[in-house]
Amino acid sequence: MATQIPAARASRIGSALVAGLGLMRAFFARGTRRRRQEEILLDLLRQLTLMTEEIHRANLIQQYRLTVDQMNRTIDDPSLADASSTLTGLSEGKRRQLLFANREYGSLLLAHRVGVLDWDELLGHLRILCRNAVFAEYWDRTAEHRRSIPGASVEGRVGAAVDVMMEELADDPEEWWIVGPPGAGRPS
């Protein structure tokens, strides 16, 4: 004997089933909507992070432009060189050369900091710069200036790498292309 469900009862079960499915859809729709909102929020955070990094790089570049502008004025006007340089006992021409060497080093450092040069490319350019006698004199005369730079900073790590290059270059000037181990002092 087959059990039959009266039509009224069947319609109530059907209605309950439809209502239950509707609730489940709404629940999952809210879950889907929430996941989508979280995805959008994460994407916005990633974009904000990229914009923040880009603004930081733009600020570094702007600050470097201001520094270079001041250096150019100092190089052009010897009376300003006395106000901006702490190095003493230099002729006007030698001071200009050392200021220019500082500008070259700063330019390479900036290129690395904004992502134009990776660590190995930076070291390659610095190896060549270290071969220059004017830069070597600049580096030697400004050793005291670099002592206040934190060793863990980008500039501190780059300075330490240049110190190693200068020492190794002094030991064997004919092997300048292998000065410093590859990746030595590479920032993490």
Rank of each mutant, 00 (worst) to 15 (best):
R103S: 13
L169A: 08
P150L: 02
R127S: 11
L60E: 03
M24H: 00
T67C: 00
R146E: 05
R131T: 15
A7W: 02
D82S: 07
G180Y: 08
R127G: 08
W177M: 04
E54H: 12
I13F: 07
D76A: 13
M71S: 12
E144L: 07
I61N: 04
L87V: 03
A111H: 14
E39I: 07
I55Q: 12
R186T: 14
G159K: 06
M1D: 05
L41S: 10
N102R: 15
P187N: 02
S15R: 13
P6L: 01
R35A: 10
H112F: 15
A111T: 09
T88R: 06
E168L: 09
P187G: 15
L17P: 00
D172A: 15
A184F: 14
D69P: 00
T74M: 11
L169H: 13
E174M: 14
I5F: 05
N102D: 15
E155C: 01
L123M: 15
D120P: 03
D171P: 03
A83V: 05
E144M: 06
Q62T: 10
G31P: 01
L80P: 03
W176S: 11
E39P: 00
A133K: 08
T86V: 05
L122S: 13
A16D: 04
Q37R: 08
D77A: 12
I178C: 05
L126I: 11
V158S: 05
N102W: 11
L60F: 07
T74K: 02
I40R: 08
P182A: 12
I128G: 01
R35F: 02
L48I: 04
P173L: 08
L87M: 06
E92D: 12
W176E: 05
A16K: 04
V179P: 01
D163F: 06
S148N: 05
C130F: 01
